[in-house]
Every structure is written in C-alpha cells, then in structure tokens.
Computed example of a mutant assay.
Amino acid sequence: MNTTARRIFSTTAVTAVLSIATAVPASAEPDWGVPGSTGGGGATTTQVREVPIDDNALEYLQIGLGALAGMAVAGAAAVSVRRFGHHAPHPA
C-alpha cells in the first residue's frame, strides 16, 4: 500500500473517531436516580423529570457545519493525493 492511500485511510479514521467522540456526549442521558427513594431522614423524595419536546425543526446550522466538515475532509484528501501523487519519473 502506498503512502497516499495510508494518509487517506488515516485521515478517514481520525475523522470517524472524532465524530464519534463528539456525538457520544450529546446522546448521553442524565441519571435521575431511583424514584421514590428515601432520603437521609426517612422522608420519601419525589423527583420531577422534564421531557424535552422536539419540534422536528430542520437544524440549518448542524447541516451547514456537517457539509463544511465533509468538504474540508474531501479537500484535504484531494490536496494530499495531488501533492504526493507526482513521484513517478518523467521520460526524458
């Protein structure tokens, strides 16, 4: 495998790892504890859980940032291929 392919694969792998690393905390759910648990004084505590309402809105900022990141990765791969792809000897 040549160095260009290795660079493309490593760039793709880093992008995938960073994407997963930034998406995982956003999908985490807080630990609300056990409902109706007793406190230190023996009194029963009640917890109120608020449920966020999703209005199914189209998030233009997220779509734009995703498209921008995709273009940046594609551009970096294209520059890498172009820059390091001309190492073949030229006929005299």
Rank of each mutant, 00 (worst) to 15 (best):
E59N: 13
N56S: 05
E59W: 08
V73F: 01
A72C: 02
D54I: 01
L61V: 10
G42M: 03
A28E: 08
A23P: 05
E29I: 09
M71V: 11
P30W: 14
V34M: 13
E59L: 07
G70Q: 03
L58T: 01
G42V: 04
V34T: 15
I63F: 02
A57N: 07
V48G: 01
S27E: 11
T22M: 14
T46R: 10
I63W: 03
P30H: 13
L68S: 08
L61H: 02
T38Y: 15
G40S: 14
G36M: 11
L58A: 00
P25G: 08
G70E: 02
A57E: 06
T38D: 09
E59H: 11
P25H: 10
A23M: 08
P30Y: 12
G33S: 11
Q47R: 14
V34Q: 14
M71G: 05
V48H: 01
G64Q: 05
A57S: 10
A72E: 02
G41V: 05
I53V: 09
G66Q: 09
L61R: 04
I53A: 02
E50N: 04
A21N: 09
D55K: 05
D55M: 06
A74N: 01
E50S: 01
G64M: 04
A28T: 06
S27D: 07
G64F: 07
A23H: 08
A26I: 12
T45C: 06
Y60P: 00
Q62R: 06
I63C: 01
G64L: 05
Q47C: 07
T46L: 10
Y60K: 05
A57V: 04
V73Y: 01
Q47T: 12
S27I: 13
T46S: 08
L61Y: 05
G39F: 13
Q62G: 02
T22P: 03
D31C: 09
V73D: 00
E59K: 07
P30M: 11
Q47K: 14
A72R: 03
V51W: 14
T22Y: 14
P52K: 11
D54W: 02
T38S: 13
T45D: 08
E59R: 06
S27L: 15
W32D: 06
V51Q: 15
N56K: 03
Q47H: 12
G39W: 12
D54P: 02
G33V: 09
G33R: 12
A74R: 03
G41T: 11
T38H: 13
T45L: 12
A72G: 00
E29S: 11
A26S: 14
V24T: 14
Q62E: 10
A21L: 15
G36Y: 13
V73C: 01
S27C: 08
L65M: 08
D54F: 02
A57P: 00
V24G: 06
V51K: 15
S37L: 11
A69C: 05
V51I: 15
G40L: 14
G39C: 12
Q62I: 05
G70Y: 04
S37D: 13
G40K: 15
G39T: 11
W32P: 01
M71S: 09
P52V: 08
A23G: 01
A26M: 15
Q47N: 10
G70C: 03
I20F: 15
V73N: 01
T38L: 15
I63A: 02
V51N: 13
G64W: 04
V48M: 02
A67Y: 13
T38V: 12
V73I: 07
Y60E: 05
V51Y: 14
G70A: 05
L68Y: 10
L65F: 08
G41S: 14
I63T: 00
